[in-house]
Design a protein around this nucleic acid. Structure first.
Lengths: 136, 136
DNA sequence: ATTGTAATGTTATGTTATTACATTGTTGTG
DNA sequence: CACAACAATGTAATAACATAACATTACAAT
């Protein structure tokens, strides 16, 4: 259960509960949805979720989708490059796929350099309709 | 005042007030900051701001920065391509610059196509330190 | 004038996130 | 063991962001 290839320290109880909730979801979850799912496990306040999320985000096990105010478990084996992941969010089914694209990353880095901007993090979220939903 | 080269219909009173607030700001503003700035002009409720913003976003005069929950006036002469703008957000001074990059747009479009994903809109927000803040 | 529509106003509420502070648990050291 | 130090958790309150539902006003077209 909740074994990941990511390099990370052992998770605490709350971090594990939040991680499992996200790993078992088939789409992004909001912090409050996670809270509701974990009430049976003793969660009572948003902070319990947000604190766990902070840690999981730091370690790259979880990504935050800025345009949805929601969170997804990272589906990559190795998230060392998680700062430069592209998310494709289907507006029909709500599912999210995650792509790491080296060329895109380099292109963004070049754009930033051209403006003498030191790039720390890139948020790239595409909206549209996924393959499965198009064929319906 | 508030003359733009953008093609758009005439703005209403509230839309003009919100547009001017954003155009005169030197960085992104939250909806509630705009509300506070416009209290002297009769604004009393968030909805007055959000309604105006909806229209301004539709017409491309204003962009929403998802990672900040804030809004900026478009600095481009022509925002027909505003769906694919890259924002560089300085985490030191808070200023935002806006770049339209055709090659990047094409690259994203290719990535989407490769996954058979119909791309509707791209959110691209870079975080880091701008030229001015680096030299300080 | 009257009617239809767009814009605006108002109140309440829903959703997302943080601050501040108290308590418990765990680890290492004398 | 005792106990200090720190990490993790618990709890309450509130801040920040956004929308729903409904009432009113403004204004153009006939």
């Amino acid at each position: 259960m909740s074994e990941h290839i990511h390099a990370h320290e052992k998770l605490t109880k709350n971090q594990t509960l939040v991680m499992d909730a996200l790993a078992n979801a088939d789409g992004p979850l909001s912090a409050y949805t996670i809270l509701d799912q974990l009430r049976g496990n003793g969660f009572r306040a948003p902070l319990q979720v947000y604190r766990a999320l902070d840690k999981l985000l730091d370690s790259g096990l979880v990504h935050r989708l800025e345009s949805l105010n929601a969170f997804v478990a990272c589906r990559h084996d190795d998230c060392t490059d998680h700062e430069q992941t592209v998310f494709m969010i289907c507006e029909t089914c709500g599912k999210v796929s995650e792509i790491a694209d080296k060329a895109l990353t380099q292109h963004l880095q070049k754009m930033a350099s051209a403006s003498q901007f030191s790039l720390t993090k890139a948020t790239i979220e595409l909206r549209g309709r996924c393959k499965a939903c198009k064929t319906v």
